[in-house]
Design a protein around this nucleic acid. Sequence first.
DNA 1: TCAAAAGTGTTCTGTATACACCCATGG
DNA 2: CCATGGGTGTATACAGAACACTTTTGA
Lengths: 235, 235
Amino acid sequence: MTNYPEASRILVAIDCIIFGFDGKDIKLLLIKRNFEPEMGKWSLMGGFVNKDEDLSDGATRILYNLTGLKNIYVEQLATFGKAGRDPGERTVSVVFFALIKIDEHDSEAVKSHHAAWIALEDRPRLIFDHEQMVVQAIEHLKYNAALHPIGFELLPERFTIPQLQKLYEAIYNIPIDRRNFSRKLLSTGLLIDTGDKNSHSATKKAILYKLDEEKYKAKFHSFWNFMPDSMRRSD
Amino acid sequence: MTNYPEASRILVAIDCIIFGFDGKDIKLLLIKRNFEPEMGKWSLMGGFVNKDEDLSDGATRILYNLTGLKNIYVEQLATFGKAGRDPGERTVSVVFFALIKIDEHDSEAVKSHHAAWIALEDRPRLIFDHEQMVVQAIEHLKYNAALHPIGFELLPERFTIPQLQKLYEAIYNIPIDRRNFSRKLLSTGLLIDTGDKNSHSATKKAILYKLDEEKYKAKFHSFWNFMPDSMRRSD
DNA sequence: TCAAAAGTGTTCTGTATACACCCATGG
DNA sequence: CCATGGGTGTATACAGAACACTTTTGA
């Protein structure tokens, strides 16, 4: 055992960027603080790291408290550590990036935390440097959804290709050609036809697919560009 | 001003993964510790965050101390925060990823820190979770060098295309076709012919290029794959 | 003058794109 | 029966991969 007596100890917080998709807009799960500091203002969901708690466990704990969900797609995004970012006391915040299936969340838990789903464009002013965190998370989403099949994490277990297309159109704010999108998706081999079709449609019902979990895991890291094409598919 | 009296304060460290390229191998700058804890063992260069010091400033400071360089390519890689990762005391480490031009570093400073450039394959056992950090950094290098033109950061100001090719072959451990690589590189428009040629060559001398800084900055974030090609070139 | 490395060119093939057509559904 | 949205097909352009040839250099 060694001690580091001269070094300074700092508060370590965790903040979570939680994305959802309601079929039309990308949304963020934000809380209206009913506690100090900055009571009454909007912020990301967060908390301090417990003594003897792994960072990733802290993120899981905080996400579970707010959403009631355990198996969430979570990545560490970045750590924000400007000296004056929290005016109260020096605090370093490790920010986690989460994608959830919006229909599965526990709306009671959300309500009790004074949280709300808010479309990206409608997001309010946030405390501290939380806006910067959100901006970086949106960049991350755009970047990674183009390279890895993470979009599925925002959709229900069973989904249609048109749903997936609307998701990508929302992420990138561009129109996508229906037919090419469909072919590209199917060519990945990641989709399994469930045999069922979408009910609740005023027109032709779309095929419900589910993700091929095996291939999803195997292919997760398989999109490249600059290097020889052999790299894209391998790994 | 608000205080968070009940929350626990934690030591926050910074560790730096420093990559270099000697024309043949990708190397890491590691230190043989002549201080406690873990004296005599190999580790990454690091240190604690100073009170009132931004995280990124801390990284810059540590990198400057070891290399004597100020304008280094640095990115935040990730934060390692398992509860028991440092047996001495709970410590969270923010890891930075740095690429340097190996010929420009201050070898005196390196010597005085008992540091050494070690090829990736020859790296020794490292303390704590530093090996994990290195593995993640190598992944990051492979991933990002394929998508963004960061390879240049590892080469001298003026470099030849064959040099660049050797770098990529070292990163990916694969042979690359000379002719296709050259055309692909030149087609990016990022290279400027300096007019000079490589001396010290037993055969035909290669053209020395330098980076077009303007275009480099403008195009840095411009490689995509999954989305429509319009996204690849824009942004 | 020759081996080794650097530079330039050509062909082929796969993938992305743009666009046309047909099918199912409920009002 | 028709407007709307979903599924399938085809021609074209472009970029990557494979491979041949020429040029330069110093020993």
